[in-house]
Design a protein around this nucleic acid. Structure first.
Lengths: 236, 236
DNA sequence: CCAAAAGTGTTAGCGCTACACCCATGA
DNA sequence: TCATGGGTGTAGCGCTAACACTTTTGG
């Protein structure tokens, strides 16, 4: 026996939703699609799965080809298989999401790859069912960030507590009391205070912190319960 | 433009992990595979996605064809795409998990379809990478059940609090104090007490409850935080 | 010296956990 | 009547949320 005869073979694609944070707002990365149909329209980073690569390999390859990004946090989200989702030919797409620090790659992405960052509120129309993918990805990162420290992936390796709080407030779209916030994050034991200040945000300056990588891995499973308003967060 | 030329098409399959609870233990359903390779060996409910159906439709169809189950809780889990996972030909598989009340379908499943239930501890070897799928599914239901009331899908429409507690103790593999347990579940407002007792489990009998469906849907997003030992539960 | 952001402590209330005894009934 | 499982109440503790003032320093 060599093959499963009589079965139909389908195109399989990967689409990546790339989230970034620049200290101000949570953003997603889009590019202008390079081929028909919908050529020139805004799209997620997507491409076809090749015969010899796994899905994780495909998503990493596509992300690198379209943005130069490599070694970033990338996680499978959901697979979309509506028969009509691509008008040209049936294509099933495995969606992934990535989390990166915008500033680390800002110049490279815009100069070399012509991708652009958009805030959540001002995202242009994207092709096919990609809006649905983006919505699901937003729900998933909120859901996961409520219990796991994944949002650190969006920050530079040195960051301040006000920056971190700003990120959480963005992702959960809520205001958090800064006294309670700093107590909680410091209580996790995940942060190491540095003898250095970020003077960009204020005159007084805010201390930099970095992740305690040992504690990070051991506490990844159970971080803090950070759901400010659980009803606003959806199931995976 | 009619097709994406030059791209390779792949086989796409669906595999369903069916969980059931019989009042005693959490079990999964397996069948003897009906075709080569691995014909006759224990397998999840699987089949190929057809050209005109979505992934959700495919999983529902396959579950019905192989077990007669219809209208049950079914949720997409993860997509497995290692190029070598099927030795005959590359096949990417979208895994789903289902939750059912074993007793409701027990006779039908064993008599008509020759599927069998196995406890978690005594699961036989399954084909390909299906063991990995089962492990991931177990993690996922624990993870989700810690915050959402999905485990009611495993119970009959009338159930007792000791039965419910037994289910939670099974899924989380832990002992729970019965006073605290009943306080918590009753406090959710999801249960309606019936004027009827289950006398099977004890002489005195335990009151039956049923779900308050209105509250069930409105409280689905935020149930109770039921993680008894967070470190034992893995991320999705 | 003033504006703007960083940093820090206390209290009250709620929720969770721990814990033990009585009830109902079939055998 | 006794063994078995069902059902219930309370007290202490820990965690969380609410809340305001001082510090620093560039302009």
């Amino acid at each position: 026996m060599q093959k499963y005869s009589k079965q139909t073979r389908l195109l399989l694609a990967v689409d990546c939703i790339v989230f970034g944070f620049d200290g101000e707002a949570l953003k997603i990365l889009l590019i202008k699609r390079g081929f028909q149909p919908e050529k020139g329209n805004w799209s997620l980073m997507g491409g076809f799965v090749q015969p010899d690569e796994s899905l994780d390999q495909a998503s990493n390859r596509i992300l690198k080809e379209l943005t130069g990004l490599e070694g970033v946090y990338l996680e499978q989200l959901h697979t979309f298989g509506d028969p009509q989702r691509d008008p040209i030919e049936r294509t099933v797409s495995v969606a992934y999401f990535a989390l990166i620090d915008i500033n680390k790659y800002k110049k490279q992405i815009s100069d070399d790859y012509h991708a652009e960052w958009f805030t959540m509120k001002r995202t242009p129309k994207v092709i096919f069912d990609q809006q649905e993918m983006v919505e699901l990805a937003k729900k998933r990162i909120r859901y996961k960030a409520a219990m796991h420290p994944i949002l650190f992936e969006l920050l530079p390796s040195k960051f301040t507590i006000p920056q971190l709080q700003n990120l959480y407030e963005n992702v959960f779209n809520t205001a958090i009391d800064k006294r309670n916030f700093s107590k909680r994050v410091l209580a996790t034991g995940l942060l190491i205070k540095l003898n250095e200040k970020d003077k960009a945000g204020s005159k007084r300056g805010a201390y930099y912190y970095q992740l305690n990588m040992h504690n990070y891995y051991s506490k990844f499973q159970a971080f803090m319960n950070f759901i400010p308003n659980p009803d606003s967060i959806s199931a995976s």
